[in-house]
Amino acid sequence: MFNIIAEGLSCLIRKVVSLGLVRGATFGNDIHITHLQFTDDTILFLKPKIEYVNNIMRLLRCFELAAGLKLNCHKSCLVKINKGGHVEEDWAALFHCKKAHLPITYLGLPLGARPS
């Protein structure tokens, strides 16, 4: 049952991307990614623009209201990847979550760690 609801969130994210309200990360020349989902976990990849952060927060709030679910901000974190500046503290405050730095562990796997 939860997979059906999670697919609804995925569809909403794809829609706001198609409308240009949110832009995900680009790897190489042709790999574009906005989110990854595994059971009740979602990772969002956003270009570092405040409009995209605000728009994704609006989308998540609408999803909460429509689905009757609640985003668990205490388990959420914001991770900045290869960008200068110090906006991550302000953005973490918008999400009401903590900030983290690579490497982190996700689903028991290290992300951003050196291969050795």
Rank of each mutant, 00 (worst) to 15 (best):
D90E: 14
L111Y: 02
A25S: 10
W91A: 10
L78C: 01
N29C: 09
G85N: 06
K83I: 14
P48L: 02
F63W: 15
L60G: 04
N3K: 06
K49W: 02
K75G: 07
I31F: 12
G24N: 05
T105L: 14
V17W: 00
V79E: 00
G68N: 07
N3T: 15
H32I: 05
P103H: 04
E89S: 13
I4S: 10
V53P: 09
G112Q: 04
C97N: 01
A100G: 11
R23I: 06
N82W: 00
A92F: 03
E88Y: 07
D90W: 00
K49P: 00
T26F: 02
T42Y: 03
N72I: 07
W91I: 15
A67P: 05
L19F: 13
G68H: 03
K47E: 15
V17N: 10
C77Y: 04
E88A: 06
I31S: 13
Y106A: 12
L44G: 05
H32V: 07
F45C: 03
H74K: 08
L111D: 05
F45P: 01
I33G: 04
E64G: 12
H35A: 06
K75M: 09
F63A: 10
L69C: 14
K15H: 11
T34N: 15
T42M: 12
F27A: 08
A66C: 11
G24K: 00
D41N: 15
F2P: 08
L69R: 05
C62D: 09
I5T: 14
P48C: 12
T34A: 11
A93V: 00
V79H: 01
G84P: 08
S116D: 12
T39L: 10
L107T: 14
E64P: 08
N55H: 10
K75V: 09
L19G: 08
P103C: 03
I56G: 01
N3R: 03
A67W: 01
A66F: 05
R114V: 04
T34H: 06
F2N: 15
L111C: 11
V22H: 05
C77K: 05
